[in-house]
Amino acid sequence: MYRAPNGEEFFIIDGHVHLWDGSPANQRNIHGKQFIDCFYDYHKALSPQEYLWPKDKFEKYSPETMYEDLFVKGYDDMAVLLPTYLKDFYINGFNTTEQDAVMKERYPDRFILNGAFDPRDGERGLDYLEELVDKYKIKGVKLYTAEWRGESKGWKLSDPWAYRYLEKCEKLGVKNIHVHKGPTILPLNRDAFDVADIDDAATAFPNLNFIVEHVGLPRLDDFCWIAVQEPNVYGGLAVAMPFIHARPRYFAHVISELLFWLGEDRLVYASDYAIWHPKWIIEKFVAFELPEDIRKETGVDLTMQAKRKILGENLARLYGIDIEAQKAKLNGGHAKAAAGAR
């Protein structure tokens, strides 16, 4: 819960968090080292100075650290765990559903646990998806289309096998499809970040929600274009949000553009923890006001109502969370913990 200086309260659901192991001991090869190094550069490039972590902490942090950062120091009330397997780069995987499940088991009211699938797993993967649903009751998956698999350097949502998985998701009640576009899909002569396959899948599966992570960056322009036409496409604000600190004017442009094309009901806040810390992002976002000239240019505004939706209400709707009931549950938890401590 975040209480703004003016007394307004916000229930906050963080749409994109990780518990990863990128430590040298888990790195399978140079790509594993380069992957976590690249994440660390993102962290360094856009974080305020006082939030910078040393490299070794960034490579591997504990569940306790994560809980503390998100819910004690940060203002998140709940968070969506999005796995990124990367088994070709990391011996035990970078961030699997099983790793994330540790958090869910310890703090069941705090986390929404998501699974993942890779259509290149064929029939076996369909069974795995069913297992994930049975075991963890997942309602969403994170897809990373640029994941390497031996000779293959990625896949598309419009592939026939991807359709079979999406059909299965629909059947199993896995409604929220989080998609991260990465840079190495084939064929190599096409634009690797092309979001056209999301357009295709969103049309074919109108009952599923497609949350495009990083609002399609580096293809924000194309993302806005498809999102206008597909009412079941959402924008996840990870990566866009931290610009609020380093480049606030560009952040104002980006959020205005998104409000203009998608509207306030289809944008969701995300920290991308541990790349960025939720505390400063939330403080700055709630305090943020669009500059007058940009407001005039686009004709949209970032109102308190829009902020409330982006920070929590939109994700609550997607994941079927009753905010008032959840608040009571979490407060009960605090009361119990306090009573136990006495």
Partner: peptide
Amino acid sequence: RRVWLNTEMNGIF
């Protein structure tokens, strides 16, 4: 404007 903004963002990034 979308194309302009996207390119600017990528450049900064």
